[in-house]
């Protein structure tokens, strides 16, 4: 039980007549890199919002970091990190100020915050950029800083919503190096992406179609199952049958 950080059973969310998330059940283990794929509108965003404690489900059960999504969503928020392509850093604050600000939000204080901030700056090799405005940095760097900030408070799980959109191939891979590092330290990574090669970097991948999980396994096994040599092949076979385009 201690090994499972996300557990859902029959998790459902309706908006009126529309079933955005239809009875999904899955488990994610500690330190796992879990790819959460699906076509636009398949229900990924809704499911992710529920797991982050931002939206309550209509029915079914879900526990994140051991906390119930119905009743303990404030505790959930304390034990997760979140980063998306859209939500990022404050462009008009300096790198160091951003790190301290977000660290502060997650409850880091005083010497601990200062120390973690400097450690992070050193680890990312940003000593010369620490006092530059975030707005002046290239996108790839911003995304790397944003990710590091999201795990600064050592959350149990970090949710990444299309973290690498539009980033150049080298930075994209450096970003994944950071993800591996985090997973190796025991942080569970829950990630959505439209890059199918990135799906292969995940330990396990789920593919949502029309609100349900159509497939869930390791990339190797999925490729075997769908008799194709790439995750793109798996995805196309599954998503092509999607009914809804909402």
């Amino acid at each position: 039980m201690t090994d499972t950080v996300i557990h859902t059973n029959g998790l459902t969310r309706k908006f009126g007549d529309f079933i955005a998330v239809n009875a999904i059940s899955f488990e994610v283990k500690k330190g796992e890199i879990f790819g959460f794929l699906g076509a636009n509108g398949a229900g990924k965003t809704t499911a992710m919002k529920i797991l982050c404690g931002l939206l309550s489900p209509s029915s079914g059960e879900a526990k994140v970091a051991g906390y119930d999504v119905y009743t303990q969503n404030e505790s959930i928020k304390k034990h997760i990190g979140y980063m998306s392509q859209k939500f990022s850093l404050y462009e008009n604050l300096k790198v160091r100020e951003n790190i301290k600000f977000y660290g502060g939000i997650y409850g880091l204080r005083g010497a601990d915050l200062n120390q973690k901030t400097e450690q992070l700056i050193n680890r990312l090799g940003l000593e010369n950029e620490a006092d530059k405005l975030v707005g002046s940095l290239p996108l790839g760097w911003k995304q790397k800083i944003a990710f590091s900030v999201a795990i600064l408070h050592k959350p149990k799980i970090v949710f990444l919503d299309e973290p690498t959109g539009g980033v150049d191939p080298v930075t994209r891979r450096q970003f994944w190096d950071l993800i591996y590092e985090a997973a190796n330290e025991g942080i569970t990574v829950f990630v959505t992406t439209h890059y199918m090669d990135e799906a292969e970097y995940c330990d396990r991948v789920s593919i949502m179609v029309d609100g349900s999980i159509a497939a869930l396994d390791t990339p190797e096994k999925l490729k075997e199952q769908f008799k194709t040599n790439s995750m793109e092949g798996v995805f196309l076979q599954l998503a092509r049958n999607a009914k809804r385009s909402e």
Partner: peptide
């Protein structure tokens, strides 16, 4: 200009 950014692989295809 970037017509397929943020679009899933099926729609992109």
């Amino acid at each position: 200009d970037e017509p397929t950014t943020g679009v899933d692989p099926v729609s992109r295809k």
